[in-house]
Write a protein that binds this DNA or RNA. Structure first.
Lengths: 301, 301
DNA sequence: TGCTGCATTATGGTGGCACACAGAGCAATT
DNA sequence: AATTGCTCTGTGTGCCACCATAATGCAGCA
């Protein structure tokens, strides 16, 4: 087991290997090309050490060959996805999601201490502390004045929910009218297909989560297309908040169909080049969703 | 020196003491009133231990008197500000400000390691790491893939500056039209006085910083009045970003006068109850400021 | 000269430990 | 019965050392 394997290899090495592979493919590099570790290091903005590690990994996979001293590219067609860990969601993100799930299930008290969480989830101090800090920035959790943390009670309250929608109403429609607004090529088609999937398939048990993520990606994608990083940041934050707090997850099939077709309508307008119409539809979409009665139970203050 | 003094007393104790003092004053508590530590603890959402500490502090200051067993209120008029540490700016905040200043002075490289910063500023690792993480959330600094951090080069770039203003243009005017919008009583008058100070006084050397903070407080105050916590959060983030990156700090007297009078104009409209007019003026104010040529030097990419 | 392997140094994440302090139970006091 | 002092346990933070790994210097080589 001394050979470098895909697993148990430093994350940075894998990540660099993936990046290089992608770059070779997009540049159409031919097998047999000579590679310089030093040049690669400069290109990637990193020192030679991790580059050497990445190349060792690629050599073990037969993508690259070392004739003692020099590196030769052998199989540039290797699928980068096989290097795994693509969306190596932060350990912190993963933990936040577990917290969200357990909270939803009612398996987690309102008031917790960092130690409890450390023990319960078998995590290091750093991860727990970071996650709590991030959640507190979202407003999902607050520090007690003394010890411990408290999951914000009013967190999924109707007031917060309304504030969230009003906030998005201020941002999302105008974002589509930004002068720099431009969708990445292929994005609209990809999104459309995902949404149509929800309309044509029968509604399954795992679909609520899948639809939530599609929905989040839709809104984040449009925010990104606005070209304004602050808008993107704000929308991603809203997504994370909703992901954590379970807004809307239980919306039910009927409402999902409505949402999906509204999204598709927005895509229609965008592809027709009518951004004003798209913004208008976005406004109605958000306002309509906001006005829905919400079936969450009201927590005690 | 064994007596509890204002200093070297746990921050929580001081903070609780301040809170209680404020509450007594706003409730108009009379001297001689009996106090129960247990009741106070419940009120403050904290255990009896820190409450006891806070009361010991107040006793040392003569605000409260202990007849062996019971607590009596003696001097409810004591000025809470004398307890000091009011805006006990996080060590982290203070450090961030030092970084900002040194960066502005060009005394800090583009690329730094945590150790360097630790050594240079004689701080613990935790403070440095936290500060960098917070700055990275603002986008002011980014992690290198390997080791080290890099101050975002394009950070005060014209593009980012424009994005920031466009973001605020989307939020701030509509925020003033929110149905729940309501200014705290006295806020408008207080703000007006501050601004008029800048118009009437001669322009001094320390005024740029003071005006920046007044300006930030003005915008944050309006955001808060909107009643939407997401709006407030976004605006505060923008303030912190601008504070760090030194947008506008060197605007010069003439421009400050214009800004101050535009702010006063907005206050006029609000006090007249004409929020539509106020929002319109806010829009013009932001758009006008955004269009200013910016005299910052452009950093190399 | 430009690159490599090897060796050295520096970095940042992690875990253990200690300390100051918050929380909570209990007997005593009124 | 309510509240307090006392005490003990639990909590979070700072400090330190360790370790995997990234950066870098250097001699050798094409």
């Amino acid at each position: 087991m001394a050979k470098p394997s895909i697993h148990d290899t430093p994350a940075l090495h894998r990540s660099l290997a993936r990046d290089m592979l992608r770059r070779w493919q997009s540049l159409g590099a031919a097998p047999g090309a000579r590679l310089s570790r030093l040049a690669l290091a400069k290109e990637l903005g990193v020192s030679r050490t991790p580059v050497a590690g990445a190349m060792a990994l690629l050599e073990a996979l037969g993508v690259v060959e070392s004739d003692g001293r020099h590196l030769l590219l052998r199989d540039p067609g290797f699928d980068p996805a096989r290097l795994g860990g693509e969306a190596e969601g932060d350990a912190i993100d993963a933990f936040i999601m577990r917290l969200a799930r357990d909270r939803r299930m009612g398996e987690l008290e309102d008031e917790v201490s960092e130690r409890q969480l450390q023990a319960r989830y078998e995590l290091g101090r750093a991860v727990v502390a970071d996650a709590l800090r991030r959640l507190s920035e979202l407003g999902a959790v607050t520090r007690n004045r003394g010890h411990g943390w408290r999951f914000a009670a009013g967190y999924s309250s109707p007031e917060d929910r309304a504030a969230s929608y009003r906030f998005r109403l201020m941002l999302e429609p105008p974002a589509m009218l930004e002068p720099a607004f431009a969708l990445p090529s292929g994005w609209a088609r990809m999104m459309r297909e995902k949404h149509e999937g929800f309309l044509s398939r029968r509604w399954g048990a795992t679909d609520p989560v899948a639809f939530f993520e599609t929905n989040a990606a839709f809104h984040a994608g449009l925010a990104e297309a606005s070209g304004n990083r602050f808008v993107l940041q704000a929308i991603e934050q809203q997504n994370q908040l909703r992901r954590f707090s379970n807004y809307d997850w239980q919306r039910g099939e009927e409402r999902v169909r409505v949402s999906a077709s509204e999204h598709i309508g927005i895509l229609d307008a965008l592809e027709a080049g009518d951004r004003a119409e798209a913004a208008e539809r976005m406004y109605r979409h958000l306002a309509g969703t906001a006005a829905l009665p919400w079936n969450g139970r009201r927590l005690a203050t």
